[in-house]
């Protein structure tokens, strides 16, 4: 792949730079906040809506854009950007080893027909928060829910601004069209250094559970402090970017990604409407 890569914005810029260095080679990586003379570049943009305003221009220049949520202020605007083509939405959990194992086991029937799903992500209040918890963080877990349970029949959402002056916590309960019910809790209002992720998928014949508080494989304690990690040879970010680079050369893979992204986006905006209207959507 000869196309240059431009990395814009976002808190994980160093990790992305490292990933692209490994994936496409050092000379093709640059860091920029705006598009310049590049055309047909791969533009990896993260952050709030302000950093996304150039997406249409990049698309017009023949660039392929990799973007996180939020993409645009409305569902229609977001869908329009995806329909223009050459746009990949980041859905990192689908490339996360934990989720992949849970998805694989569920799909293989290890726990029988799906009954309930609980997905809980609790982040420290220092985590980035663009606009609201829903805009910033909900797309990825919604994609996970859909990957696990299929289309969603209805979702009821309550947002709360607990500690950060704008909605930083979300509680959602809903039902898949297949009948199973789910619970989603997201928060970026937890204390400093607190981070917790819990996945629980229950089927008619068993249960799959992951709890980051109990499952860390490495514990480090020094006089300078402590840390818990799950070291991975291939981090989810790396796996996702490698797959997205593959999509760029494979029309059917790109189409599949767009369908998945559209479905997640559609549910994202139902989530927003539910929270605003105080009704299940």
């Amino acid at each position: 792949m000869d196309r240059p890569v431009i990395i814009c914005g976002g808190p994980d810029i160093e990790a992305r730079t490292r990933a692209y260095l490994q994936l496409v080679g050092r000379r093709r990586v640059s860091v920029a906040s705006q598009i310049g003379e590049f055309s047909e570049a791969i533009v990896d943009v993260r952050g709030g809506l302000a950093s996304k305003r150039l997406i249409p221009a990049w698309q017009q220049h023949g660039c392929t854009v990799i973007s996180d949520s939020p993409l645009a202020r409305t569902l229609a605007q977001s869908q329009e950007l995806i329909e223009r083509g050459n746009l990949l939405l980041t859905l990192p959990s689908l490339y996360d080893h934990r989720y992949q194992l849970v998805l694989q086991q569920t799909a293989q029937g290890a726990i029988g027909d799906l009954i309930t799903v609980r997905l809980i992500r609790l982040l420290p209040m220092q985590s980035p928060l663009w606009n609201s918890i829903t805009f910033t963080y909900v797309l990825d877990p919604l994609a996970v829910l859909q990957a696990l349970g299929g289309p969603v029949e209805r979702i009821m959402v309550q947002e709360r601004a607990l500690r950060r002056g704008r909605p930083d916590t979300l509680f959602a309960v809903g039902r898949f069209k297949g009948g199973a019910i789910f619970y989603l809790e997201l928060s970026a209002a937890y204390p400093s250094r607190y981070q917790s992720e819990r996945i629980e998928v229950v089927g008619a014949e068993g249960i799959l559970e992951y709890d980051s508080d109990r499952n860390r494989s490495l514990r480090l304690l020094t006089t300078a402090g402590g840390a818990l990690h799950d070291p991975l040879y291939e981090p989810p970010l790396f796996r996702m970017l490698r797959d997205y680079l593959r999509c760029m050369n494979d029309a059917s893979a790109m189409e599949e990604h767009c369908e998945r992204a559209q479905a997640a986006l559609e549910l994202l905006f139902r989530t927003i409407v539910s929270a605003q209207a105080h009704e299940a959507r």
Binding site: D113, I115, T116, M156, Q158, R160, T169, F171, A172, V173, G174, R175, G179, A180, I181, F182, Y183, V202, A204, A280
Partner: peptide, 29 residues
């Protein structure tokens, strides 16, 4: 707001799974 269904043991005449979001006085969730 509550969701419930009979899924773990479909033969039951009562619901066996549920999820609830409850609002308390003052908007506490």
């Amino acid at each position: 707001y509550a969701e419930a269904a009979t899924l773990a043991r479909p033969e039951l005449a009562v619901e066996d799974v549920g999820m609830l979001v409850i609002t308390f006085e003052g908007g506490l969730i």
